[in-house]
Amino acid sequence: MNISVRNCNLWYGDFQALKNINMDISNREVTAFIGPSGCGKSTFLKILNRMNDLVDGCRITGSFHIGGVDIFDKSTDVNLLRKKVGMVFQKPNPFPMSIYDNIAFAPRTFGVRKKAELDRIVEDSLRRASIWDEVKDRLKKSALGMSGGQQQRLCIARALAANPDILLMDEPTSALDPISTGKIEALMSELKQELTIVIVTHNMQQATRIADKTAFFYLGELIEYDTTEKLFSCPTDRRTENYITGRFG
């Protein structure tokens, strides 16, 4: 699904964290947000599934459409929005329950009760997150007994079980070792065949490896947004160049 954002401004209290951002994100591509800490990239990501609604004193203006639907419209059900726009967090956050129950959480939330149906969704989601072979013999065991990398892929599977059109990933590999990171990157390349992925990353190599398009944020502004190849090989803005060549950030 296409994401379209116009004139986005966001304030935390008196502090303006995002300044007049316009952006279109294409379907079935990986889009990476890069930029130094505090530049607003995570904040912008969290607008897309309205997780900023939970933050006290957060005020947002602008227009935000996903698949043509205004996500801040009164008639938009925020729970259905979050079902369509899944999210994976920086720190793996499996629930303290079995692997099976973790994956089945979203389907159960949306009314799937039949065991055969749940079994099918659980297996399918775990397969799509390439973790089925590692966990198929211990679905009833607690998810907290898995390694960090496995937990993060479980969280991806858990998000996939809601059958989202878009997957938001907020620095999904920053807490993981290189091997786990590689697995998750490979997974993203597969998943983009069927869904839109937006990833926030601090790791510029990661952006070049996996992203079709990259957006550079700085001090709450969207400085440059282009194909990854173009942005990293010949950036048009001086600040982008300084950042990707490591002169600050």
Partner: peptide
């Protein structure tokens, strides 16, 4: 942990 709350809300659970 707040991560549990966020994780659940982000899955569309109210």
């Amino acid at each position: 942990p707040d991560g549990f709350r966020e994780g659940s809300l982000a899955l569309g659970a109210g």
